[in-house]
Amino acid sequence: MSIIRPEIEFIDRSTRSIRYLEHGWPTDLCRWHSHEEYELHFIAETRGKAFVGDYIGDFSPGALYLTGPNLPHNWVTDEVWTREIETRDMLVQFNQSSLDALRIAFPEFSEMRQMLTLAQSGIEFVGFNPTFARGHMEAIRDARGPERIVAFLRLMVRVNEHAEKKVLSVSKMVQIDGNGKQARIGEVIDFVVNNFSEEISVDRAAEIARMSSTAFSRNFQSTTGHKFVEFVNRIRIGQACGMLYATDAQVSTICFDVGFQNLANFNRHFLKMKNMTPTEYRNTAQTDLAPSVGGGR
Rank of each mutant, 00 (worst) to 15 (best):
D54P: 03
Q239H: 15
C255E: 00
F128Q: 05
R148V: 02
V167Q: 15
V232K: 09
E147I: 02
I3W: 08
P291I: 08
N233R: 15
T247W: 00
I8F: 08
F106N: 11
E187Y: 00
H73I: 03
L66I: 07
L29P: 00
G24M: 02
V159Q: 05
A205T: 02
W25Y: 15
I176W: 06
S110M: 10
L21M: 10
A249D: 12
L116Q: 08
G294H: 14
P72Y: 06
T214C: 07
F125T: 00
F228H: 05
E161Q: 14
Q120G: 04
F128A: 07
R141F: 03
V293L: 08
E164S: 10
L102A: 13
V258R: 04
S110D: 11
D142C: 04
S97R: 14
Y20W: 07
N233I: 02
G48A: 04
I149W: 13
P146I: 03
V126Q: 11
G135W: 01
H23V: 06
R113D: 14
E199Y: 09
A240L: 06
D190Q: 13
P278T: 11
R113L: 12
A151M: 01
T253S: 15
E138K: 10
N283M: 10
F231T: 06
N179F: 10
L40I: 02
E207F: 03
D190I: 06
P26G: 01
I104P: 01
